[in-house]
């Protein structure tokens, strides 16, 4: 008998956990919201969501011992929004040391031409290279809500232009992450989630 892949959504004080869970249900994938270290370690895939402020969230992860759990994961992990930022090295949001899985930096948008911050709404992504993308997502709109961004760098696998070209997505080893809200990006977001589940 084939077992269905087990998907763990890391439960912490992130605002979009429910939305991620519902998105998984919509694509017909069962997932479990959990903070249990062993359940997370033993899952086939792990989703690391995130909405909130970086330093509080990092402090929470450390208190719960989840920081080391996440760093040590070897199965495919998908960080979303603040989840992506926390996988990076450092965030300018309250000068926060992050998990350091992806050696890139998180910076605050410095609007040059009257752009609004937070960056809120639908923007196209382009130059997609990552394994969680296929050709259908190139130059398609996805949904963003954020004031901080991950700089373009060696692990960037997709770009979006807002104020400057920034990392729409990053990928390093078994860690994948999107700045946009994959769980709220319509059918394009669902395609990406499906691609992640198939990894």
């Amino acid at each position: 008998m084939m077992n269905k892949p087990s998907i763990a959504i890391i439960d912490y004080n992130a605002g979009n956990i429910q939305s991620v869970l519902f998105a998984m249900q919509r694509i017909g994938v069962e997932a479990k919201v959990t903070a249990d270290h062993d359940t997370i370690r033993n899952a086939d895939k792990v989703i690391f969501p995130g909405v909130g402020e970086a330093s509080t969230t990092m402090a929470h992860l450390r208190n719960e011992g989840l920081d080391n759990v996440i760093r040590g994961l070897t199965q495919p992990v998908l960080g979303v929004c603040v989840g992506m930022q926390l996988l990076c090295e450092h965030s300018e949001e309250n000068d926060t040391e992050c998990l350091g899985v992806i050696p890139q930096k998180v910076k605050l948008f410095q609007p040059a031409n009257g752009e609004k911050v937070p960056h809120m709404g639908w923007n196209k992504m382009y130059d997609l290279k990552g394994d969680i993308f296929d050709t259908r997502q190139e130059e398609q709109h996805v949904y963003y809500v954020h004031s901080f961004y991950v700089e373009e760098g060696p692990y960037t696998v997709g770009l979006t232009d807002y104020v400057l070209p920034f990392s729409a997505a990053v990928q390093k080893d078994n860690f994948y992450a999107t700045q946009f809200h994959v769980e709220k990006s319509g059918s394009i977001g669902e395609q990406i989630l499906q691609n992640f589940i198939r990894l």
């Binding site: 639908w122 382009y126 296929d134 050709t135 709109h141 807002y162």
Partner: peptide
């Protein structure tokens, strides 16, 4: 759908602005 034409065609940065909702 093995390749996406849009990837290789001349880019139009105008179309990459934040959409009005």
């Amino acid at each position: 759908n093995r390749i996406n034409l849009k990837y290789f065609l001349p880019k139009n940065p105008q179309q990459r602005q934040l959409s009005k909702r």
